[in-house]
Design a binder for these strands. Structure first.
Lengths: 206, 206
DNA sequence: CGTACTTTTGAATCGCATCAAATCTGGTGG
DNA sequence: CCACCAGATTTGATGCGATTCAAAAGTACG
């Protein structure tokens, strides 16, 4: 008898993954500072973040770390499905939990289960869209515009959860944290923004 | 008897697409200024650029156009596979040629042909990687760093074709064209960069 | 040959990075 | 419980680099 499917498995994975992969899912907690994988390492397991916050980053040649993505939920480094090596680091910035599953089993399932392949394509399409939006955001001039764009595109009806504080968000926006703090303060003074319970809330404003 | 496969079909598509989709490919020239599709329109055909240059852009609320991507070869807006609407405009910036195929046939092929689905996933993975690289690039401070990063990641052994000039590249890098011209000039003076035959060439340099 | 565009250079201005320092916060161990 | 520490938050001052506006020169194309 195969392993029973863990009842903690999030809805998304339940709908996405075929049963035989679901039974292979393993849960593990992750704490702030953990490194889920490192650039150059060989991927063995596909990771899905259910709680907490993870940052994908790469170190430039001057040793500065560039944030590629900040994830609060979803697959971490989906491209590792076919990559021989990770091309960035994954660092936990807020404690939470990850689901791990063998990459091999996903590859097999993609080949054998066409409905699953279709769902996987759909997931990748969403990822492409999100990344295009992030590129658009990073092309904007001015911290305020980037922040508003972030809340509009990633938020839910103008509400954006803050994860592990504004500082990590600043890195994702490609600005210094000081600049972001000032932008938030200015927008609050303008009445366009509200800070409540670890959320940024967009108000109609002036 | 089905249509014969057009001999102009590029190698990439020949390897990617199943034969029944290849026979449905239609070629059409595109000239500078053409709009391949517009934000909000319903996607009917999947487009693949073989020659020329196309820019995917979205207009901000102040009417400024933000470049999401600049393509010289490859699918234009793959995400339209599942989208009800395009979420950006596609404008031709350098005359060339596009291959068009019905989206419906691709969807059908994805469902019926698991090997094709696997290749499609592979293509999307590459796209995700490229977009992550672009995000990384846009996070870099300074025009020079962004330019060097572009040549390193998108170029071929330090050689990057210039498509339709530096101006469109400036938009992709998220900087003003003046700043890019100055950066190129400075890097040339430093001996790190060379301009030849519509190419930017990275030299070991000082 | 004229038109439209890119390329190039100059000058003024502004926003953000950077450095610095003070305050606040949550969490730890005594 | 309190002292303490590491990190986040906040505010200030300064300088650099990019944007912006402007204008001239080069270039492709009909």
């Amino acid at each position: 008898m195969p392993d029973p499917i863990d009842s903690r498995l999030p809805e998304t994975l339940r709908k996405l993954l075929p049963v035989e992969v679901q039974t292979l899912c393993a849960f593990s907690p992750c704490t702030r500072g953990d490194v889920l994988f490192r650039q150059g390492k060989k991927p063995a397991r596909m990771l899905y973040l259910t709680r907490g916050e993870v940052v994908l980053q790469r170190v430039g040649r001057q040793g500065e770390s560039v944030v590629l993505q900040r994830a609060r939920r979803g697959f971490i480094g989906e491209a590792s499905l076919e990559s021989a090596r990770y091309h960035c680091d994954a660092v936990v910035t807020a404690s939470g939990e990850v689901v791990a599953m063998p990459i091999v089993s996903i590859r097999q399932a993609l080949a054998a289960d066409s409905a699953f392949a279709r769902r996987w394509v759909s997931m990748l399409n969403q990822e492409v869209k999100r990344l295009r939006a992030q590129c658009e955001r990073l092309s904007l001039r001015g911290v305020k515009e980037r922040l508003l764009h972030l809340i509009e595109t990633e938020g839910d009806a103008g509400r954006l959860p803050l994860g592990s504080g504004l500082k990590s968000m600043a890195a994702e926006l490609g600005v210094s944290h000081e600049a972001l703090y000032r932008a938030v303060a200015a927008l609050e003074k303008q009445g366009m923004l509200l800070r409540q319970e670890n959320h940024l809330i967009l108000t109609g404003g002036v």
